[in-house]
């Protein structure tokens, strides 16, 4: 399939796919086949919600997070094709969701952001909300634990580094502190509760403690949220 230039006018979405490690390149290739220009893959770690495995400290799962830009009009079609190949409807086969893009820019070619005009729906509340919490290295596990104890599903932890706030000086060099990001997808109605909980427990309202971003999700696949309430 030929690749097409994606313009903000046509309405764009960011398709986020989380799969077990090893499948990331397959998803990337799939995106290429479907004509996506922009696709990137990150490594992350997830957790299995199993008491037995947790006792044995074997509850970690290596994950890959793939970001693909797709036209909103083809969102459903691409999600379905993706599902045919990776079977998100089965448990533990990964999840996929889309977030509407508000704008896009190519660094060398555009002088300004092309704001999406069809993106009026961007603030309408979907069924789900994606929560991205960025905290100092070592705190991500607490984020996941806070959310799990409160009855929410876990999340995917992604390694990162930051360049904010206080300067870190080691041996006369200014260094960038290591960070961790946790990506979680929760039901829209309960998102604010979880966000408030995290903010309170991790003191995110104080400077340099971390940030929390909420994004409205338009379509999801492979979420078994309701099953997880008890866990």
């Amino acid at each position: 399939m030929a690749r097409q230039e994606l313009t903000a006018e046509m309405g764009l979405s960011l398709l986020v796919v989380v799969v077990n490690r090893g499948k990331g390149s397959k998803v990337l290739n799939f995106a290429c086949e479907k004509g996506a220009n922009d696709a990137s893959c990150l490594f992350g770690t997830g957790t299995v919600n199993s008491r037995m495995l947790q006792m044995l400290e074997m509850n970690d799962v290596d994950k890959e997070v793939i970001l693909i830009v797709v036209p909103t009009a083809r969102e459903t079609e691409i999600l379905n094709q993706l599902n045919m190949k990776f079977h998100f409807e089965r448990k533990n086969h990964g999840i996929a969701f889309t977030v509407p893009l508000a704008g896009i820019m190519k660094m060398k070619r555009d002088t300004s952001v092309r704001w999406s005009h069809t993106g009026e729906s961007q603030h309408t509340q979907g069924d789900y909300v994606a929560l991205l919490t960025i905290v100092d290295k070592g705190k991500a596990a607490s984020v996941v634990q806070i959310s799990q104890t409160a009855g929410y599903f876990g999340g995917t932890i992604i390694r990162a580094r930051g360049s904010a706030g206080k300067l870190n000086v080691v041996l006369d060099m200014i260094v960038e502190p290591e960070k961790e990001a946790v990506l979680m997808v929760v039901e829209g109605a309960r998102a604010n509760h979880l966000a408030a909980l995290l903010k309170q427990q991790l003191h995110l309202d104080q400077p340099n403690r971390g940030i929390l971003i909420q994004m409205g999700v338009s379509q999801t696949m492979g979420l078994f949220q309701t099953d997880q309430h008890e866990g």
Partner: peptide, 11 residues
């Protein structure tokens, strides 16, 4: 080299 910038609405 070129790069892309995506902008997502946040709440």
């Amino acid at each position: 080299r070129d790069g892309s910038i995506y902008i997502l609405p946040a709440r």
